[in-house]
Design a protein around this nucleic acid. Structure first.
Lengths: 152, 152
DNA sequence: TCACAACAATTGAGCACTCAAGGATATTTT
DNA sequence: AAAATATCCTTGAGTGCTCAATTGTTGTGA
C-alpha cells in the first residue's frame, strides 16, 4: 500500500469519526445532523437566506434529489420554507425561516466550539490548521459558504 | 465561522469527492465500492485472511450490523465466505476466498494508482502527503490494515 | 451448580444519500 | 411557429449505514 492510498484511507476514517462527533453534538443540542447544519449554513450565507434548490444542491455537492429529501424534515419542523419563483415555474427556493436563522446561529456556535476542541491543544500547533485546510482545499474541500469570520 | 470549523467542513467536502472518485474507479474496474475495498483490505491484512465479524466491525469503524450487511453481497458473489468458530458458537469469521484475494490485489493496485493521481503533481510537494497523513492520524484516521508498503 | 451479565450476530426500521424516470416548464433550434 | 433540447423538481428503488430489539451462547460470581 503506497503512502497516497494510506492518506486517502486516513481521510475517510477521520471524516467518519468527525461526522459522528458533529452529529452527536448538534443532534443533542439542536436536533440537527451535521448534514442539516451544512445545509442551513449554505442558506444562511446566501443573499436573503434563500437559494434555488438546484443551486443549493450544487453548493452542498449533492443531487437535486438529495436536497429535496434533506429539506423535507427541515420544512416540517419550520426551519426552512419553500418559495416559488414568480418568473419561472420550474424553480423552487429554499429559504431560512426566522426559527431557522436562530437555530443556525446556535448550531454554528456549538459547531465552532466542537471544531475548536478537536483541532486545538495537544499536538496541534500554530500552522497546522491552515496547512490542513490548504491540503483539504486541494482535495476538493471547497464551496464553503461566505461567512464573516467569527473569532473564538 | 472560525478556522477550525472551516477545516472540518473542508474535510467533509474533500471526503465526499474522494469517495465518489474511488467508488467510480473501483466500481467500473472491479465491481467494488470504496467501502467494499476497505473491507476486503482489512481481511487481506488479517492472519489467514480471516477475522471475526465483530473484530472486522471494530477495524472498519462500523457496527456489527453494518458489517453483516456489507458482507452479504460480497459473500453472494464469492469474494468472502463465512466460517464458524469450533470453540465459540456465537462467533462467525469472515474470510477472503481465493477469488476475493485476487480481486483485492487488482483493486489495491487500481486504488493505489488513483490515490497517487490525486495526491501527486500540480501543487503537491514532497512533504505534503506525510504531513497530511499526520494530521489525519491525529483526527482519528487510524486503524488501517498492516500491509507491506507497495512502492509505485 | 446456577443465575445473570456480557458477548456475537442478525433483522426491522429509519436516516442519508444516488440514480433513473417522469412531469412540467423554459430555451434553443429548425 | 413548431419541434427538439435543456432545466428543475419530485418520486421509486436501491445502496450503505445506525440504532434497537432479539436470539443464542459463553463467562463470571455467588
Amino acid at each position: 500500500m503506497n503512502e497516497y492510498l494510506d492518506a486517502c484511507l486516513r481521510l475517510a476514517r477521520a471524516q467518519a469519526l468527525l461526522v459522528k462527533r458533529f452529529d452527536h453534538q448538534l443532534g443533542r443540542l439542536h436536533g440537527l445532523s451535521f448534514a442539516d447544519f451544512q445545509l442551513l449554513q449554505q442558506l444562511g450565507g446566501a443573499p436573503g437566506g434563500r437559494m434555488r434548490r438546484v443551486d443549493l444542491a450544487a453548493a452542498l455537492g449533492l443531487t437535486a434529489s438529495g436536497v429535496t429529501r434533506s429539506l423535507g424534515p427541515l420544512e416540517r419542523i419550520g426551519l426552512v420554507e419553500r418559495e416559488p419563483d414568480p418568473r419561472d415555474a420550474r424553480v423552487a427556493y429554499a429559504a431560512l425561516t426566522d426559527a431557522g436563522r436562530e437555530r443556525l446561529q446556535h448550531a454554528e456556535k456549538a459547531a465552532g466550539q466542537l471544531a475548536a476542541s478537536v483541532l486545538t491543544g495537544g499536538e496541534w500547533t500554530e500552522g497546522d490548521v491552515p496547512a490542513l485546510a490548504g491540503y483539504l482545499t486541494r482535495l476538493g474541500g471547497t464551496g464553503l459558504p461566505e461567512r464573516p469570520a467569527a473569532q473564538d
